[in-house]
Design a protein around this nucleic acid. Structure first.
Lengths: 258, 258
DNA sequence: GGACGTCACTCGTCCTTACGAGTTATGAGT
DNA sequence: ACTCATAACTCGTAAGGACGAGTGACGTCC
């Protein structure tokens, strides 16, 4: 039934028909889709064609497929965490990183020594293969269940002569205070990248199909704009977004753009 | 030949074998992979299996497949644009948005009237279905060829009584000046999301397989923290990253986190 | 009543065959 | 020498069949 024939390939027509049915509410979020056998009957096509169509919807992130159980419409509008990337400082000089999320540590922090990679080395102004302290944390937001991978990298040059050398698992806000106490005036820049997750990130962050991760990299610089500290935060992009405040900087006029 | 049998499904073994060959340098970036027919011979499997393996590598973003031509190892380390999301203001009160990228307009700005969607409406504090001015621009960075979709949405309430009502294609920096002249003190917040591209975004931004887009949303607020203006920037995540400066805000202490 | 095995149902994998569609090189014709 | 049709590649789509593997419910057996 359901004479379909409009746009392109057959499987795309089937995919479009299923997509329309989902969007029309025939299959509400969380509901199970008809089985492959039923779709074959319903649209009068072969199994490879049905599987191809289902596969396309899966790549779109519209449905989830579970072996032995069936296909299910992915729950939309699941709670999205907004991670505010802010730093506050009290009059007393105490720093706090204020994400707007009450992260909890899902595991003990994992402290280790690593070497710079191409990316982290460049960001920290170091050569490749230089040693650093590293501290990984798996964070969860109990309110929504969102997970995040947090990593702090401290070059040996930064830790030297400070309590950081003995406690590489110091939390960032405390590290800011130590560095300020050491005479630094701190500035921060943060870059945001998106990419498909690596296999270990998929499992650690419980990332579904067709979902990228947000990868933020915060560089703390001291006096002379010298990079002192690197923090990474990786989150599943379907569960979280990141937010920044922008303040107008006083600057000589350059050129405007679109 | 090439007796393969280690991990799981056949097509995964084939995919792993091809992946290893690529990483081992047998097929350097940009080089063409053996054709499907050759892979069938080489690994002694059927065409669906080969196609399944190739499809997996494609989903990983490791290769690109072109109809009629063949499969090619995706070039890595292509130039990545860092889009600095900054706003500057001269002593004379002139604003400039300073992205660190010299965007050029690839097409004429497309001006139209739209209605708020669920996402843009909530961000602007409006109900759904309210009318706005919209202006879309397709930008390119001549230095790297990166492309971006830029959109400005102006609620009618904001435009009313200002030159914006007659010129919805005003560039953001100029709009900031108009709003400041109208008595507003502006603040900006920007959220960053990542998701897989929609079909029209894929074509407009020339996004390859398995590549997400970065979607930034900047809200301009005036006096009373009332949302006045919304800007969106969408970029292919394999060509660009976005960057922010974070300044420590004076604030009463709350609680620190990891 | 509870434990366990079987069975029916789901999707996953793999094969064979066939044809369509895009690309490029070859060669004949002008 | 140039133009253009053809041929020989490439991947894309579609059908059919067969079996394996995970899941859950049902019914039997203890």
């Amino acid at each position: 039934m359901s004479e379909i024939q409009r746009p392109g390939a057959l499987y795309q027509q089937v995919a479009a028909a299923i997509r329309d049915a989902i969007l029309a509410g025939e299959f509400p979020p969380g509901a199970s889709l008809p089985s492959e056998a039923q779709l074959i009957q319903r649209y009068g096509v072969s199994r490879p064609t049905v599987r191809n169509a289902v596969s396309a919807l899966r790549a779109e992130g519209l449905i989830d497929v579970q072996h032995g159980k069936g296909s299910f419409v992915r729950a939309t509008g699941q709670p999205v965490v907004t991670v505010e990337r802010r730093i506050t400082r009290t009059a007393a000089g105490r720093f706090a990183t204020h994400d707007g999320v009450e992260w909890e540590q899902a595991e003990e922090p994992s402290v280790h020594r690593t070497e710079t990679t191409a990316a982290t080395g460049r960001a920290l102004g170091l050569g490749e293969g230089e040693e650093m302290f590293g501290c990984d944390r798996l964070l969860t937001d109990p309110a929504t269940g969102a997970r995040a991978l947090h990593r702090v990298l401290i070059p040996l040059a930064t830790a030297e002569g400070t309590p950081l050398a003995q406690a590489p698992d110091t939390e960032p806000a405390a590290a800011y205070e130590l560095l300020t106490a050491a005479g630094h005036t701190l500035t921060w820049t943060e870059t945001v990248q998106a990419r498909m997750p690596l296999p270990d990130e998929r499992t650690a962050l419980q990332i579904p199909d067709a979902t990228p991760i947000l990868h933020t990299t915060r560089i703390t610089r001291g006096t002379d704009d010298q990079p002192l500290l690197l923090e990474e935060l990786r989150i599943s992009a379907d569960r979280a977004q990141v937010a920044y405040r922008i303040t107008a900087e006083k600057a000589p006029a350059r050129r405007a753009h679109a």
